[in-house]
Every structure is written in structure tokens, then in C-alpha cells.
Amino acid sequence: MGLLNKLDDPFEGGGVLLGTVEDVLNWGRSKSDWYLHFGLACCAIEFMAMNASHFDFMRFGTIPRTSPRQADFIMITGTVTLKMAERIKILWEQMAEPKYCMSIGSCSNSGGPYWEHGYHVLKGVDRIIPVDVYVPGCPPRPEAMQEGMVKLQKMISEQAIFNKRKRMAEIDKQNEIK
């Protein structure tokens, strides 16, 4: 039994895997996340470097999409200005559920170096859209962005799909009571 044989036939003689449908769906979802191609500022250059030959982001199963309708998650790479914030909100609303957001770099986390006198800088993209993963750094190294991707994959693979609607209905009810 060499390695190649094992690759051809991983479950010798046809095996049975036990698991929930949720696990299978989450496994599929987490390993093929397509992201919205969206560069804003300095972090976008590191983001380009991450996409290129040396770091090869596509081995995570991620493919850049230019349309928000085809994307699973959005990467906010850079400073969000007030002028841009409205566009980001539109893009976010155009994306289909389930959708995730990754905030890359100090600027989109909290305003970064522009927090004090930035009259035209939004201090954190989480003021307009919900963020799932924050990657710190100014700019973060490509390795840090990949770490963020791993975190996002982990988050997706542990999500509960079928009870989501039920839970959301409960949350909505609570909000109404408030």
C-alpha cells in the first residue's frame, strides 16, 4: 500500500462516514469561500502580494469575485472614509446570505493612525456593518491575513445552520419586546 493507492481509494473497500448534514455542509462552505475583490488602501497592496505567487491565497479555496452577488465574504482592506462608507454599506447589502466580513488592518478596525484628527475617516468599519474577523496590523503581514482566513474557516465550520432561523426569530422577538 503506497501513498498513491491510498489517494485513489481513501476508504479501503468503500467506507462509511458518520456525521450530521450540518457538518458536511459547513465543511463544504468553509473550504470554498469566495471573496469580494475590494482594495481600499495600503493593506490592499499586501493583499495583492498575498494573492500573488509567493503566498498563494487561493490554496484556501478562495477565489476573487468582482461582483458582490457572487461573494461569500468581503475583506475591508484599508481606511474606510465617510465618502466610501456609504458604498461599502451598499455592497454589503448586495451580498447574498450567508455572508461574512473580515476587517483587515488597524484603519478598518478602529481608524488606526487616523483616529484623532481624521475628520473624514470612519473610526472602524464595524460602525456600519457587522465584522466577523479582525486582523490587526498596519498593514498586517500576508501571514496574518491568512491566519484571519483560517479563523474565518473555523468560524464557518462550527456554525449551526438549521437552527439559525429559529434563533434569529427569537432574537427578533426579544428586540420587539425591548
Binding site: L82, E86, K123
Partner: peptide, 11 residues
């Protein structure tokens, strides 16, 4: 400014 189009500007 304190606010622009419903977004809070100061930190």
C-alpha cells in the same frame, strides 16, 4: 463634525 449621514465621526 459630530455626525455625517448618520455616521458618528469622532472616535
Amino acid at each position: 463634525p459630530e455626525e455625517y449621514h448618520g455616521m458618528r465621526v469622532p472616535y
